[in-house]
Computed example of a mutant assay.
Amino acid sequence: MIDLRSDTVTRPTAAMREAMARAEVGDDVYGEDPTAERLERLIAEITGKAAALFVPSGTMGNQIALLCHTQRGDEVIIGEGAHCAFYESGAGAAWSGVQFEIAGRGGLFGPDELQEVIKPPYDYHPRPRVVALENTHNRAGGRVFPQRDVRAIAEVARAHGLVMHLDGARLWNASVATGLSVAQLCEPFDTVSICFSKGLGAPVGSALCGDAETIVRARRFRKMLGGGMRQIGVLAAGALYALEHHRARLAEDHAAARAIAEAIREVPGASVPEVETNIVQVDLPVAAGELVAAARSRGVLVGASGARRVRVVTHLDLPAARVAEAAAALAAATREVLTRGATPA
């Protein structure tokens, strides 16, 4: 099977496993794991922030950021379909007691759309506190948040005393697509959550980055949420290996995604939006499950991301030699289901 359901399905390479096996470790809750400390110093440097904290997942990184920045009853302004509201099990409401306000449509928005949803400081309104952007935006199809818009949004946010948080789970892809460094992309934000287990192919882990005071508070929240792990150098070593060896090849994933998109676009009736990074969206006039099943029968795993939308994600476990095979199989599967005619979604 060629598994293109997500870039989280990758497996550690033999060299990564060896690096993990050789990792020097200690008890991180006591602050004694040298490999975790090395990773945190490196990712802080890469993001241009003062400090960083290794966390088990991007969800925990985002939710710790909300805990650091908000009080119960506060409001977090997001783009439509943002991960921190759509894919994190209601954690913002459960742990921080916040509610979410959507700016714009389609995941991305601009400064004017932000301005429209910022509530005035009346007692009967929730208090706007955080603007949280996602780059690249998953449900928008891996779209890159234009840095010009990010900076303009940050100016509006600062004028209203709002904190800026970045869900940068796939920020590596945005950096490759734009040619901007990760630090440049992170500069307008107070905190950044960034992932090692998606495009970079590490088995586990994300980091939350920010100023030193925030990360001290974040470490306590991590412990509260059950993320105070012990000899985490084994996991940190996988992330370090990924940072050192897998960043440069991300352009290959983007090229593979474009090749797959081009093949599916040849099928009449299939709509494939522009591909900016490693995510391909296929919009159909039939139920998404039809294409998922047809693709599986041809040896390719993909996932439904809506009633009539299928998501295809390229990653380092898709060899260049098999890109054409995957593209042909998905095009054939799409042609099959569209030839059958529409079925209820």
Rank of each mutant, 00 (worst) to 15 (best):
E40H: 09
R139K: 11
R340Q: 07
H165Y: 03
G107W: 02
A93D: 04
G168L: 00
G227M: 13
G228D: 02
D123A: 11
V144K: 04
L42K: 07
W172F: 09
V144P: 14
P344C: 03
P273E: 00
R127Y: 02
M164F: 01
P56T: 00
D3N: 12
A157C: 05
A332D: 12
I78W: 02
N173R: 15
G92W: 09
R335C: 05
E24S: 10
V267H: 04
V144D: 00
E336M: 11
L225I: 10
S305I: 14
L185S: 03
P56G: 04
V323L: 01
I260M: 08
A14W: 05
A82C: 13
E266P: 09
V98G: 02
V163N: 02
G26A: 04
I2A: 05
M16K: 06
P344Y: 00
V302M: 01
H83I: 11
E134G: 06
P273R: 01
D317P: 08
R311L: 14
V323Q: 03
E262L: 08
T314N: 08
A256N: 14
A207Q: 07
G238N: 00
E187M: 12
A159P: 09
R222P: 10
A157W: 00
A242R: 09
L318P: 13
R148L: 14
E80W: 06
R5A: 04
Y30R: 09
P268F: 07
A257S: 10
A52E: 03
T47Y: 02
A287T: 12
V267L: 01
G81C: 13
A15C: 07
W95C: 07
M20E: 09
E274R: 11
R5L: 10
R129C: 01
L180Y: 02
A94P: 15
D7P: 08
G168H: 00
R340F: 04
D253H: 11
E134R: 04
E134F: 03
E274S: 12
R340D: 04
C186T: 13
F54E: 01
H83F: 09
S57L: 05
A255G: 15
I78H: 03
E75N: 10
L316R: 11
A14V: 15
N173S: 08
